[in-house]
């Protein structure tokens, strides 16, 4: 009798197992994988600094970066309105940036500061994830080569092409803490083959600091500050000091476009310009209005 009862109980238990635990079996069959964290930032740039965002494979970003002249809104300053708070003049960069793979993007740009062409590449090394065994941060590498094409000031000298070149290496460490806050820390190095002053450093080290706060589903507030770690008291030939770049602004996204509207104390458009060549002190007078406009095109064929 006992035996039969035991067998019966086992039978029932087994049957129950089979009925109820298909969902549990699913968890064994397909354990919930860590999900990659997306949209840490809205765009490949915060304001000036690169973010961990990459162009996806076969996607092309046409990017216009624009910085107007200083607003000169100090009370004492009579030129503010006269120059329409800076929008009478501007510097800009046009860029085409392409995702070779989801991890590698390359780009070509030209800015009218120093008639500079730049070639850039950004590679995703680590991707932040959520879930079990997650990765807490994203890490990207960014590098570029700048080619200044201004005529040499002294043509009688023996000038070298290499004097036109400058280089940037940057590690971008980012973390999206939650829906509302993402931060970036970017140790950066700018190397210039040719500098104005003999006493000037060829290598400038800096730490890019950035934060982005979500305001709504389509808007974010961004802030960035890039303190230089060396050469802090170096001057240009004309005696002007260099200053750290500072910026804050808004991202507004509408479908395939991202509009980035911001205020900065520098005119620089690429790293060699805004990290190491900014001669504008942070004052109300020197703030400039600027914008980045990004339009992304998918070159992927339908149905692939």
């Amino acid at each position: 009798m006992k035996k039969i009862v035991t067998v019966l109980i086992l039978l029932m238990a087994n049957n129950l197992f089979a009925q109820n635990d298909l969902l549990k079996m699913m968890e064994e069959e397909a354990p919930s994988k860590p999900t990659p964290v997306f949209a840490t930032f809205k765009s490949t740039r915060l304001v000036n600094l690169h973010t961990n965002e990459q162009m996806k494979a076969k996607h092309l970003d046409f990017r216009i970066q624009h910085r107007f002249q200083p607003m000169q809104i100090d009370k004492e300053n009579v030129y503010g309105l006269y120059n329409m708070f800076g929008i009478d003049g501007a510097v800009m960069r046009l860029g085409l940036e392409y995702g070779v793979t989801d991890k590698l993007m390359i780009g070509l740009g030209r800015s009218n500061i120093g008639k500079t062409y730049d070639l850039m590449a950004k590679y995703k090394i680590l991707q932040q994830t959520r879930g079990k065994k997650s990765m807490p941060i994203s890490v990207n590498y960014f590098g570029n080569i700048g080619i200044n094409t201004l005529e040499f000031s002294d043509k009688t000298r023996n000038n070298f092409f290499t004097s036109r070149l400058s280089f940037v290496n940057q590690i971008i460490i980012t973390r999206k803490f939650n829906d509302y806050l993402s931060v970036a820390i970017s140790p950066s190095m700018v190397h210039q083959n040719l500098v104005e002053n003999k006493s000037q450093s060829h290598d400038i080290y800096a730490l890019g600091l950035g934060a982005s706060i979500k305001i709504s589903r389509s808007a974010r507030f961004n802030f960035e500050y890039i303190p230089r770690l060396n050469a802090r008291n170096e001057k240009k030939l004309n005696g002007t000091l260099f200053y750290d770049a500072f910026a804050f602004g808004l991202d507004i996204e509408t479908g395939g476009h991202v509009f980035q509207l911001h205020f900065t104390n520098g005119a620089g458009l690429i790293e060699q310009q805004f990290i190491s060549q900014n001669t504008n002190k942070l004052t109300l007078n020197s703030l400039r209005f600027g914008f980045n406009l990004s339009r992304v095109f998918s070159l992927e064929k339908e149905g692939q």
């Binding site: 997306f38 949209a39 996806k56 494979a57 996607h59 479908g255 395939g256 992304v296 998918s298 992927e300 064929k301 339908e302 149905g303 692939q304």
Partner: peptide
Amino acid sequence: PNKLMEEHFNE
């Protein structure tokens, strides 16, 4: 086909 849509879908 459009990765931007994919990101919006997820985000």
